[in-house]
């Protein structure tokens, strides 16, 4: 039962999309989590709600919005197309964007939780000792919210591995380019002769998700 070329391609693409999207989602997540945990500002609950939208909206709706924004005639897509001659929709970059957006709220939630648990006196002490904001971020906030950051990474990584609706709408189902594990399983389900492939892909999918969860449990202890 050696793993086939088809499965390798799908698997590697899934891992590529999941890891890049998690890395991309990290920096804005950290920033927003910090503001939500530490600052009070007008419209905070609105911003909070907005960030959680990908968690509650149907993924297809997110895919639709992304298509509207990044499509050839979209607000951002048009700029990219006319200035750089680059198309975003239906490329692996589109799959990365879709995954990053879907994983973003999970990331923010877990980092925010950790940041709000940091004793404010530590930050005040650092300020009185003359540390600037960047230094506080590097020396206090990031190290003390390490647990949340790791959990966030794993959660958004796993979310990305399971992402379906937004990806198929915005990035399509192109083998070798945007066909990640769930999309490959979906495609094989439509094919009467592919029952064995379905079972194998499902097996791979369970194995990877379980591994990600076990690693996250290990790391967050």
């Amino acid at each position: 039962m050696a793993i086939s070329d088809y499965e390798i391609t799908v698997l590697l693409l899934s891992l590529k999309v999941a890891s890049i999207s998690s890395i991309i989602a990290f920096f804005p997540s950290l920033l927003i989590a910090y503001f939500l945990a530490r600052k009070n500002f007008i419209g905070k609950s609105f911003v909070d709600g907005l960030i959680h939208l990908p968690l509650v909206l149907p993924p297809v709706v997110i895919g639709f919005f992304l298509l509207i924004i990044f499509g050839k005639n979209g607000l951002v897509g048009d700029i990219f197309f006319s200035t750089f001659n680059i198309r975003i929709s239906f490329t692996w970059i589109a799959a990365v964007i879709a995954s990053a957006v879907m994983g973003f709220p999970l990331f923010v939630r877990s980092i925010r939780q950790s940041i709000s648990e940091i004793d404010p006196k530590l930050i005040e002490a650092a300020q009185t000792l003359g540390a600037n904001k960047l230094k506080i971020l590097k020396k206090i906030i990031i190290p003390l919210s390490k647990k949340g950051i790791i959990t966030g990474f794993i959660l958004s990584f796993s979310r990305s591995l399971g992402e379906f609706g937004a990806t198929i709408t915005f990035a399509g189902n192109i083998f070798g380019e945007t066909q990640t594990l769930p999309l490959a399983i979906y495609s094989s389900l439509q094919d009467p002769d592919a029952n064995l492939i379905v079972i194998r892909l499902v097996g791979i999918s369970i194995f990877i998700s379980l591994a990600a969860l076990m690693i996250s449990n290990r790391l967050s202890k």
Partner: peptide, 8 residues
């Protein structure tokens, strides 16, 4: 191949 988009 990679210029073809197959839609369902």
């Amino acid at each position: 191949d990679n210029q073809i988009i197959f839609l369902k």
